[in-house]
């Protein structure tokens, strides 16, 4: 497994803390895009044929392969529904998000 990156938002308190040239210091993982979602994908692993198509077509890199099975990372899934539409075994269901 790849090492997980640190989730931290960089905030500058003063002008001295700023770098002298525009450069990226942190990543965007603090931005939990999962809150944009109205419907959430749920994978029924008993019907999964392990084709990897959901992983391949996820625009948000939020379907991860863990021990040969797809797992949805709900922190970043924006709920576009491409995985459910493209799944050849139709084992991904989009269900309404509840608060």
């Amino acid at each position: 497994m790849k090492p997980k990156k640190e989730i931290k938002k960089v905030v500058f308190q003063s002008a001295e803390e700023m770098p002298t040239m525009p450069m990226s210091i942190g990543n965007m993982l603090w931005n939990k895009t999962g809150s944009w979602r109205n419907i959430r994908p749920e994978i029924r692993l008993e019907d999964c044929i392990q084709c990897g198509i959901c992983w391949k077509f996820c625009p948000d890199m939020s379907i991860e392969i863990e021990a040969e099975w797809p797992v949805v990372n709900y922190d970043y899934c924006k709920g576009c529904g491409i995985c459910a539409e493209e799944c050849p075994a139709k084992c991904i269901l989009m269900v309404e998000e509840r608060k």
């Binding site: 990543n27 965007m28 931005n31 895009t33 625009p59 040969e68 709920g79």
Partner: peptide
């Protein structure tokens, strides 16, 4: 869980674009 099938991925595994980006839902870009 049933059968232990090996998953074959047709693309390189390394992800150089991270999650948490500001693209719309279903962005082709």
């Amino acid at each position: 869980m049933k059968k232990e099938k090996k998953m074959t991925l047709t693309l390189p595994v390394e992800e150089l674009v991270g999650s948490g980006n500001l693209a719309c839902q279903g962005c082709g870009a």
